[in-house]
Amino acid sequence: MKTLPIRTSYLRRKKIIDLAARAIFLLAGLIAAAMIVLIFVFVAGRGIQVFLPGYANAQNLGEFLTGMRWRPDLSPPVYSVLFIVINTVITAFGAAVLAFPVSVMTALFIVKVAPKSLRLFFTTVVEILAAIPSVVYGVFAAGSITRLVSGLAAAFGYTTYGGSSMLAVILLLAIMIFPTITSLAIVSIASVDRNLELGSLALGASQMETNFKVVLSAAKSGIFAGLILGLGRAFGEATAVSMVAGNKMFGPTFNLFDTTRTLTTTMLSGLSETAGVDYDIRFSIGVVLMIVILITNLLIRYVKKHIGGVTNE
C-alpha cells in the first residue's frame, strides 16, 4: 500500500545511530557528574600523600595543622597552615562585613529606589564589576589600593610594606565580592511578592519603611545565598590577592597594616618545581581550603535557619 521508497537499510542504520547517540549523551552526563568526585579524589589523594609514611619528605600532620610558620626556605622546610587559615578567615569575613551592607543597600536602591530610567545604568555598573577578571582587580589593587593604605598608615603613624597589607586584601576582596552579593540580592528583592509590600503600605508604612522591614526580610533567603557565594569567592580568590598580600612567613596577622598570607596566596607563591614536597603541599592546602569553604557554608546555613523570617519558596 505504501508508495514511499523507505529503505530498511536506512531504518536499521537509524536505529543504530539512535542507540549510539543516546549512549554518547549518557556518557557526557556521567563524565560531567563524575568530575567533582574526581577532583576530590585526586586533589585530596595527592594532598594526603604528603603525610603518609613512605613519602620522601613526609610531613607531620599535626605540625601542619597547628603550627604558625610557613618556611619553605629552611632545611628541613616547615609547613604549617593554622595561622594561614586564621588569616584567610579574617580577610574573607572582613571583606564580607564591608561588602554585605553596601551590596544589600545597593541592591535595594536599584530595585526600589532608583528612578526607572536609571535602573539599567546601575545594573550595568554591577554587571561590569562582576565581569572584570581577577588579575585586573589585582593590578588596580597593587597600583591604587596599596597607595591608599600607605597613606592611611602614615596618617596613623604606621609603616607598611609598600602598601601590601591585610587592609589592602580586605578592601580588594570587598570590592570583588560586592557584585556577586549584589546580583543575587537584586534578583531576590525583585521577586518579593508585591502583595507583601502592598499589605505593609496599606497599614500605613512608608515605602522606605516597607523596604527595610518587609522586603528585605522576605528576600532574606536569596540575600544569604548571595553572601555564601560571595564568601566562597573571597576564600577562593588567588591571583589578585597575591599581588597585595605580602606573604608573611608567620602569623596570624591581626594588624591591618601588616602583610598577611592566605591559603590561596600560599598556593601560588614560589611555584618553581612541579614535584616534591614544596609542590605537593599545595594540594594539602587545597584540601584545607575546600574544608574551610564547606564549614563556612554549613555555618551560614545554620545561622540562616535560626534567624527565621519570611521565605519566598
Binding site: A33, I36, L38, I39, F42, G236, A238, G286, L289, I293
Partner: peptide, 23 residues
Amino acid sequence: LRSLIEMLSGVPSIVFGLMGMTL
C-alpha cells in the same frame, strides 16, 4: 547527577588548577 554538576561551581578555580595537574 544534576547536583554533582552544580557543585562544581562552588569550587575555587585554583583547585581546578590542582586537578588539572594531577588527573
